[in-house]
Design a protein around this nucleic acid. Structure first.
Lengths: 163, 163
DNA sequence: CTCGGTGCAAAGCTTTTGCATCCGC
DNA sequence: GCGGATGCAAAAGCTTTGCACCGAG
């Protein structure tokens, strides 16, 4: 049962993006749609540079400026989500047709896992009510040590003083 | 009943920092303690530049390099917490003797509010158990529109198409 | 044809690094 | 006095901006 395949999500996303561009009276340039396609082909939490590189490596002629500009548009129409996972560089992921989720990041190998918990929505509602905020979105990230063998710091570094 | 005043928190923090420096065999330089004091005097969620500027304006001779270096040490011994609230620049706040809390940020005026909810701890525990992670800390930030009069975008811009 | 969008490179900002000097231990 | 820590400035890394050209409407 794949009622919504990766491909159909891309098609839906294109329609949404088109409608958004029309509503804002922005131009439907090939670069904008190429970037949207590249993003929906990806599965990871990517940064701007890696998206730029992967388009360049396919001989697509784009500039970083356009990638940044288009990402802003895609974030604004909710087709892409932007994250600040702690480094100095933003990370992005496609978000149309994917369940709302939060993230878990390994402090050692930096892998990113996803999880869902309905309580976050309740907290969001409750706090918004309590503090009189009209909450639009949230960011929850848990940081810890994973237990994979590939992970560089698998064994907890046991508090060594000077021996 | 102010069993722990702001002043006594600073004193406690100094002891913890001293112990930490000794344990790590690092030097107890005046700059390090001056930075700790300045941080514990502050009440806001500050960035490096504003901490640096406020020390400079008091004619204290410090460099950004030392501020960055010391902040790393303070974060490592849990006297200061580092946040990435979405911009490209990190924000910090003192954390010794203050209750664990999360943040709510106005998308318009960027004010930062704090709130507590015990359910976050449960989520953290549950997810760590489920995904086999040894979770060390988390970051939950809610973004929304506040309802203060001072706020620049007080009135919600009602989806205007073209007229 | 218009003027918004693009590519490229330069500039901007935050953070890190190199090196001579300084001072805690 | 030794070697870690500091101050300063230069460099690095991510993002934004300026400008001439291009192409969507």
């Amino acid at each position: 049962m794949q009622s919504t395949t990766s491909q159909s999500k891309l098609e839906e996303a294109k329609k949404i993006f088109t409608a958004y561009l029309e509503r804002k009276e922005l131009r439907k340039t090939p670069e904008r749609f190429a970037i949207l396609e590249e993003i929906y082909r990806r599965q990871d939490h990517f940064d701007v540079e890696s998206l730029y590189i992967s388009m360049k490596s396919k001989n697509y002629r784009v500039s970083r400026a356009t990638v940044y500009n288009t990402l802003d548009l895609l974030v604004e129409c909710d087709l892409v989500t932007k994250h600040q996972f702690g480094g100095n560089m933003a990370r992005y992921e496609k978000s149309y047709g994917y369940r709302q989720h939060d993230h878990l990041i390994c402090l050692d190998c930096h892998q990113v896992l996803e999880f869902c918990d309905p309580r976050i929505q309740s907290i969001q509602n409750m706090v918004g009510e309590l503090l009189q905020f009209n909450i639009k979105h949230h960011s929850l990230v848990l940081y810890g040590h994973c237990q994979k063998n590939e992970c560089p710091n698998k064994k907890q570094p046991a508090e060594k003083k000077n021996g």
